[in-house]
Simulated assay, not measured.
Amino acid sequence: MSSSLRRGVLAAAAITFSILPLAACGAGNNAQTLEIKPDNAATTVGDIKVQNAVVITQPDPEAGGPAVVAATLFNTGTSAQTLESVTVDGAGESAELKAAKGKSLSIPAGGSLILGGAENASAVLSVTPEDVKDGNAQEVTFTFSKTGDVSLRAFVVPSESYFTGWGPTEVPAAPEEDTASPTGEATGEPTGEATGEPGGEASGTPTDAASATATESHEASGH
């Protein structure tokens, strides 16, 4: 085996070895996080690694309502850390954090925390389309108890295709149209005006004129 080929094999083995621990951590919590395929934002600050960060909005771009931040957070340190807040530049208030049922927002040493998706922790933003727009890459900041702020730019995408299961669960309903008032106006006053006064005037005046003409003709023939 040539030296260049040997170096290539060793490099590939090193990459595979470095990925395996992270993949095992993700699978230990919820392997579905590995199903997000696009090149989403990732960064490392100290003991914290953020992968697959993305902001997911409503499937209808015209709909108001909440959006969510989805990401996988790894703690490569030797002590636990707690996720304290998640903010998106332009969204105003911080996301509302909620731990998965029976769990907390603490990330154990060597463990991970998944945001988004069924039965995982969640970070929900009460925003409108003006705050967070599809297609943007907006800065997202995760704040941890020991590492502090970890920021990166994440894509904003609608809850469609493979993002459907990770998007917001509250989809605003379209407002109901009030059809009672227009119907009443159309069949009320206009109808009365059309069949009432105009009809009376039209059928009264010509009849009186015809009677007067007949009387005059009778008197003339009598003379």
Rank of each mutant, 00 (worst) to 15 (best):
G8Q: 03
G8W: 03
V9H: 13
V9M: 12
V9C: 09
L10R: 12
A12Y: 07
A13Q: 11
A14R: 13
A14Q: 10
I15H: 13
F17D: 14
F17Y: 13
I19T: 08
L20H: 08
L20D: 02
P21C: 08
L22W: 10
L22R: 14
L22N: 13
A23C: 14
A23Y: 14
A24I: 07
G26D: 10
G26N: 13
A27T: 12
A27F: 11
A27P: 13
G28S: 10
N29D: 02
N29R: 04
N30C: 09
A31R: 15
Q32L: 10
Q32P: 02
T33G: 12
T33H: 11
T33K: 11
E35M: 15
E35H: 15
K37H: 09
D39Q: 03
A41S: 10
A42W: 12
A42I: 07
T43V: 06
T43P: 09
G46F: 09
D47N: 07
V50K: 10
Q51W: 13
Q51E: 15
N52E: 10
N52R: 15
A53F: 05
A53M: 01
A53R: 06
V54E: 05
V55N: 02
V55D: 02
P59I: 00
D60R: 04
P61D: 03
E62G: 07
E62T: 12
A63T: 07
A63Q: 08
A63K: 12
G65T: 01
G65R: 12
P66F: 00
P66C: 05
P66K: 04
A67F: 01
V68C: 10
V68W: 08
V69R: 01
A70L: 01
A70K: 10
A71K: 07
A71L: 03
T72A: 15
T72I: 12
L73C: 06
F74A: 00
F74L: 03
N75K: 11
N75T: 05
T76P: 12
T76M: 14
G77H: 05
T78E: 11
A80Y: 02
Q81T: 04
L83Q: 00
L83S: 02
S85L: 00
V86S: 01
T87H: 00
